[in-house]
Amino acid sequence: MEYVLHILMLIVIYSVLAYSLDFIVGHGGLVSLAQAGFFGIGAYAAALLSLKFGLSLPTVFLASICLTALMSLFVSVPSFYLQDDYFVVVTFCFQMIVFSIFNNWLEVTRGALGIPGIPLPVLFGWEISSKSEFIVLGLLILAFSALCIWGLTRGAFGRILHGLREDEVYTESLGWNVRAVKIIAFAVSAVLAGLAGSLYGFYVAYIDPTYFTVMESILILSIVIVGGAGSFAGPVIGASVLVLMPEALRFIGFTPSLAGNMRELVYGLLLVLILLFRPQGIAGKYDFTQSKGAR
């Protein structure tokens, strides 16, 4: 039972991460490889603030929101000047820098040793200790994330984001401040990834930099593509598929070490198949193989 709950918790966390990335990738057309960086910032913020300062869960979440929103400027501002592949390289660099900071700022992050003993979170007197309680908290955060994305993509802001995805020059010619739109979109995306990170930090009670590598960013992007970019159900479907798949490999009889390598192989294969035969993903609308503004 504990195992099933753990898998469920991972699906919840990756669903939040996928919603956060899908907001800019699926709706805004801004492909980013920095998501694991924001995920890590949220996790380290939770670990350090609760361990060193004994802050409560709402305060930690608030601090994580502020920090990740601020850090998102390192990605959103370059997006004013760079498009497509060049911008992806910038997000990759940001990811590498954040990872290096986690790995080398020994006085704060303890580097590769990681931060153990992250205390159990307490929400208004409710100590969250069991896996099922963490799932309840996770589902609350997932519902909040899904609602945010739903609200922001259904109305005028969503239309502007779609405009940005299809034709930035045209959208700006209509009078929309595309830079402001990008700042808001990246901030929302980073904040949600940071919340997932804080939740993850409290859940595993130990974090180290290996959880927040560029491979993790690629995994989150894979979830978005497989689930279906720009769709409401896509992130949950993608997270379910890509979290459950390596577990299925385990039951096939591969050893844990082989299963790990097979996971990468199967992810790659799945992505190629999806892009070949269903480029919009399982539940998606946005076809990654079509160029911007394709008529």
């Binding site: 005028a156 045209y170 609308k285």
Partner: peptide
Amino acid sequence: RFIARLSVIDNLLLASNAV
């Protein structure tokens, strides 16, 4: 130029909100 994947009315709404 227009947003090809949006409907005609959504294209107009995208433009109308600009002010």
